[in-house]
């Protein structure tokens, strides 16, 4: 009989890997941003799973702060995308080479 917790961990791993695949393969900056959010969701599920298994609230607070950081990241990141669109006329990540050495 499969443990429920290992099913939760499996979902978390699958979401993380799907998000990472999208972040590698897609060139649209907004889709890459959303894929990073999927990766964060996968990690959050793992945190909550362990938090419940250990009868502790630490994992839940970790997810809470992940949400706060994700909100700030969304605000700044989308402002950067708008700037890049004004400058280059697209948000194709292959065309962003300002910081490339």
């Amino acid at each position: 009989m499969i443990d429920n917790q290992s099913v939760y961990l499996a979902i978390s791993i699958i979401l993380f890997v799907i998000g990472a695949a999208g972040a590698i393969c897609r060139r649209n900056a907004i889709v890459v941003f959303m894929c990073i959010e999927i990766m964060l969701a996968g990690v959050s599920i793992a945190f909550v799973t362990f938090s419940r298994a250990n009868q502790s609230l630490d994992g839940i607070f970790m997810v809470l702060f992940v949400m706060a950081v994700a909100a700030a990241e969304a605000a700044v990141g989308l402002a950067i995308f708008v700037l890049m669109y004004r400058k280059h006329g697209s948000i194709d990540l292959d065309k962003f080479n300002l910081m490339k050495w």
């Binding site: 443990d3 917790q5 290992s6 961990l9 799973t49 362990f50 298994a53 250990n54 009868q55 502790s56």
Partner: peptide
């Protein structure tokens, strides 16, 4: 596997 610790 997830080792259960009995927390508060």
């Amino acid at each position: 596997g997830v080792e259960a610790i009995h927390g508060p």
